[in-house]
């Protein structure tokens, strides 16, 4: 960094010498929550902080984490996608079913194309026709679910000869002891993080979400940016579906049900605003990890999975409330 950058930061320091605790908590509060939670859970269980458990959690969160990266783009751009859960089911079913027909490689391509197509359709409705993304994708949630059900006839689909294919590696394999889904998640995190913070596209995304009108007045092609976020989210959902399919070597209609809720909660919990224009991939990672460790911790403490739904309800409301309240400077509207 150049010398003038230094003077700038000096300027800033001199203007606010006192450490502002409220500001720190506002900025990094989520990290404190995360640490407290980990300490709390590890005090109550023995195996929580072991390396194996850590890897297990990472593997568990990787699918949702990948889609959360797409959803982060979506929310920064100021839109929503509620159809990702259904899309996970659809792509998982497609990849499994086509595996035995066309082979694993073609099956993966088909699943990815399906994810991109559905995303493009959503993006067309929201970006070009300017429809409300919440309701459109809410409708699409059911349309996709129904298509999946029609496709499978409500049956499980599975790969018949599981020993004879490399396909299971994606979901089950390890490289240097690290599960492959975690590696894929890591790669996507890096790509998405870098694109968001280093590229023109990332800047445009923040602008479009932050102020669509001013973006238009700066010559930014808002329609195409919005359109692209849906394609990207569709793509991440497809990758998630493929990994899930590979891990289970089978799929069924309700595989991804409720994912949209977990994913939006994670992204918002990380601190990405529902109003668009702010957020980041590292924040999303933290949100995803908190939810992942929470769910793992709950299970280790002997709670059934659905207890977590209730906790997540509170977390979602709490996280959004904090965001809304900090925007308006008051707790209550």
């Amino acid at each position: 960094m150049g010398s003038s950058v230094k003077t700038e930061s000096n300027l800033k320091d001199s203007s606010s010498k006192k450490i502002n605790f409220a500001e720190i908590i506002k900025r990094h509060g989520i990290l404190f929550v995360f640490l407290l939670m980990i300490i709390g859970i590890s005090l109550r269980t023995d195996s929580f902080l072991t390396q194996n458990n850590m890897l297990l959690v990472l593997r568990q969160v990787s699918v949702k984490g990948i889609i959360a990266c797409g959803m982060t783009y979506m929310l920064i751009g100021g839109e929503f996608d509620l159809s990702v859960g259904s899309l996970v089911s659809l792509t998982a079913v497609l990849v499994i079913d086509f595996h035995d027909i066309l082979g694993p490689f073609a099956a993966i391509i088909i699943a990815i194309l399906a994810g991109i197509s559905v995303g493009a359709f959503n993006g067309f409705l929201v970006g070009f026709l300017k429809l409300n993304s919440l309701i459109v994708t809410f409708g699409m949630l059911f349309v996709i679910q129904a298509l999946t059900l029609l496709y499978t006839g409500g049956q499980y689909v599975s790969v018949s000869n599981q020993g004879a294919t490399w396909f299971s590696i994606i979901g089950r394999g390890f490289i240097f002891g690290i599960p492959i889904p975690v590696i894929i998640f890591g790669i996507i995190l890096i790509i998405f993080g870098v694109v968001l913070s280093k590229t023109v596209y990332g800047r445009y995304l923040y602008s479009v979400g932050g102020n669509p009108i001013a973006s238009k007045f700066s010559g930014i092609p808002k329609t195409y940016i919005t359109f692209s976020t849906f394609i990207i989210t569709g793509l991440t959902a497809a990758i998630g579906g493929i990994i899930l399919g590979s891990r289970l070597m089978s799929a069924q209609n309700y595989l991804g049900q409720g994912y949209e809720f977990d994913i939006i909660t994670a992204v918002v919990l990380g601190g990405t605003s529902l109003f668009g224009g702010s957020g980041s991939i590292p924040k999303t990672l933290i949100g995803v990890l908190i939810l992942g460790f929470l769910s793992n911790g709950f299970i280790m403490m002997g709670f059934p999975y659905y207890v977590q739904w209730v906790v997540q309800w509170a977390i979602l409301i709490g996280a959004v409330w904090m965001d809304v309240a900090s925007k308006r400077g008051k707790i209550l509207a």
Binding site: Y206, S207, N211, A214, S215, F217
Partner: peptide, 13 residues
């Protein structure tokens, strides 16, 4: 404020 700036972003951006 409405047409010219992305208020929540940095001066540089």
């Amino acid at each position: 404020k409405e047409q010219g700036l992305i208020l929540g972003r940095s001066v540089l951006d």
